[in-house]
Structures are given as C-alpha cells and as structure tokens.
C-alpha cells in the first residue's frame, strides 16, 4: 500500500507497472507525456519473480526515436515486454469505460487483448504505424486532388486490412471469453440484471458476434471501398479498429446513457475483475498483479466489500490511497509512504 498526499507520485508507480504490461498509460495517450519536462527519456525498471525465476525488464521511452527494451540485461523488442508482465489496474478513470467516449472502451479491450495474448502487442505496433502512414497518405492525396495516384493507397490498404481484421478478431474473441465472468461478477456486486457486451464496428457490419477472420476482412475491404472517396476528401482513415466501439447493455438498455452512478461503478468493476480472473485462469506465469489506484474513495461500502472479497485471493495487490483509513483493513499489508517522489517503507 502506497500512502501519501495527492501529487506525490503514488499513481506514477502503478502507471509504470501498467505501462510494462500493456505499453500504454491509463491516464495519457502516447509516451511523450510520460517523460519529464526537462528530460529526453524516461526508463522503467521492473524485476518480476515467479516461482524461482527472476526477470528484470527495462523499458526506455524517448522523446525522439523509438523506445528500447531489455530483458535481464539483453536487448529485446519493445513489443516483447508485455509477455513478461501481467497486471490489471483499477482506477477512478474506469467509470469512463461505461459512460465515457468510445476511446475508453477500445482501451479496455486492447488492454484485455494484449494481456491475454501478449504477441498482439507487435500487431498493435504495426497497426499504429500503418494507420499513421495511411492517414498521412490520405492527407497528401487530398492535396493532389483527382489526379492522385492511388496505387500506393492500395498497398497500404492491404496491410491495414489484415492488421485490422486481426485486431477486431482478437477483440471479439477476448470479449466473448470474459463475458460470462462479467455477468457473474455483476450479479454478485449489483443485481441479477443481465449484462451484454457487443462489439460495434463503425461504418461496416459483421455477420455475427463471432465472425471468422476472413469475413471480418471482407467486411473491412467492402467498407474501405465504399468510403474511399470520403476518406480522401477528409484526408483521414474513417474505417477500422481505431474507430470501433463496444456496446454495453444492462437489462437490454445502453449503459452509457442509462446506467446510474452505482450501476456504472458495478459494471466497471465487473469488467476489470473479469479481466483479472480470466488472466489468472489463462496465463501460466502466475496471477496478474492487481493494482488499485485510489479507487476506494469512489466506492460505497457495499462495493468496497465486494471488491475486497473478490481480489483478496490474488498473489500481489498494490494499492494507492491518500487516506489510509479509506483502505479496508483486510487489504492493508506492507505500507510505503510516498512524499515528493520518494518512497519510504514504513
């Protein structure tokens, strides 16, 4: 448990561990914001122990140029890092998975996919690169106008389509895998109301909730063909996993618009707990690290109780709190004081 006033660096510790597990921050997009204002790079080191094996991961984020990683002192690919680190973070921002913009739900799905299938981190990296290339090409085609040579767009599309289909396929597969767990969690925390979660492609249709990858591919190909003129006119990609959404329903009603504050938190917790339980079940390298970032202040007594009960069986739980008394007695283990970026064991 990390205790300290706000702004002392508690969340920073959890954010760093979270970054190793998914190559993304739960607070900001992109690595640039994670580097100190007066510095050119930031490095995270983490030593993980499972049974008798110790692995030390190093990840350096740079202001210019690409990130670099080491695993036990040897240079490694950055996209390799998540396969060593499995973690699930609960944060006040989680209510946005239910009520916020689609981006929060995509981030939830992508965390789930990368935690469950770490090799997907490389696919996401490639996708980000292709998306940037494609957007930049569309922007320049808009300038060239109708005389533009579209043959290069065709080749970028080819990569874009297969990476898109892989991501959509994996999102749907992982979603289907955790949905029963989400429902049983929700029943425990809130009520017996049924939770449904449907992958929502934007601008294209999928034949079913669990389409084969080849069908996803066909759907994306059709949609790109239909939207090509519009994409060139607007100079950006309008179709693809970067714009899709996840629809959450409680008793058939859209949670985004209809869920109460209480239901929102129950559902957000159910989604995160389902991720944790599924990782515990699927990943051979031990339980995921459970991280609770100042969440107790957000929850009422009943939800606190459920949360404590459902996570107390995990190997390692890291908690941050401004007020020690907010943390239920059952979870108070070793305490560290955090003040002005310095961590002191109590």
């Amino acid at each position: 448990m990390f205790v300290g006033r706000n702004g002392q660096g508690k969340t920073n510790i959890l954010e760093a561990i979270g970054y190793l597990s998914t190559l993304a921050s739960h607070r900001v997009g992109g690595a640039q914001a994670l580097i100190g204002d007066t510095h050119d790079e930031a490095t995270i080191f983490g030593t993980l122990s499972h049974q008798s094996r110790d692995v030390t991961i190093g990840l350096t984020l740079k202001r210019r140029g690409s990130s670099a990683a080491t695993v036990s002192g040897n240079t490694a690919k950055v996209s390799e890092v998540p396969r060593w680190v499995s973690a699930v973070l609960f944060a006040p921002e989680d209510s946005a998975i239910v009520r916020g913009e689609p981006g929060f739900r995509r981030a939830f799905l992508d965390h789930l996919v990368i935690s469950g299938s770490p090799s997907m981190a490389a696919v996401y990296q490639d996708f980000d690169r292709v998306l940037k290339q494609r957007n930049s090409l569309l922007k320049s085609l808009r300038k060239t106008g109708p005389r533009a040579d579209l043959s290069t767009l065709d080749v970028w599309d080819e990569s874009f389509i297969s990476l898109s289909a892989e991501i959509v396929d994996q999102r749907m597969e992982h979603l289907a895998a955790i949905l029963p767990l989400v429902n049983s969690n929700y029943a425990t925390i809130a009520s017996g109301d049924e939770v449904q979660a449907t992958y929502l492609p934007k601008g294209y249709l999928l034949p079913s909730d669990r389409a084969e990858r080849s069908k996803i591919k066909t759907a994306v190909i059709d949609a790109l063909a239909r939207h090509r003129t519009e994409e060139i006119d607007r100079g950006m990609s309008l179709i693809g996993p970067q714009r899709d959404d996840l629809e959450l329903l409680i008793s058939q009603r859209p949670a985004r618009s209809h869920a109460s504050q209480g239901e929102t938190w129950s559902l957000a917790l159910s989604l995160r707990l389902a991720t944790a339980a599924w990782l515990k079940q699927e990943r051979p390298s031990g339980d995921p690290i459970i991280m609770l970032d100042d969440v107790f202040a957000e929850l009422d007594a009943k939800r606190r109780g459920h949360l404590v009960e459902m996570i107390s069986g995990y190997e390692q739980i890291l908690i941050t709190s401004a007020v020690e008394e907010d943390v239920p007695q059952a979870l108070r283990g070793q305490v560290f004081d955090v003040a002005n970026g310095v961590v002191t064991p109590r």
């Binding site: 490639d126 690169r129 292709v130 290339q133 043959s151 290069t152 080749v155 970028w156 080819e158 990569s159």
Partner: peptide, 10 residues
C-alpha cells in the same frame, strides 16, 4: 518491417 514489407508488396 511494416514499411519494408508494404514496399515489397508494392
């Protein structure tokens, strides 16, 4: 790399 392979494709 993605760029290299896309170029190969082209």
């Amino acid at each position: 790399t993605v760029d290299g392979q896309t170029t190969a494709h082209y």
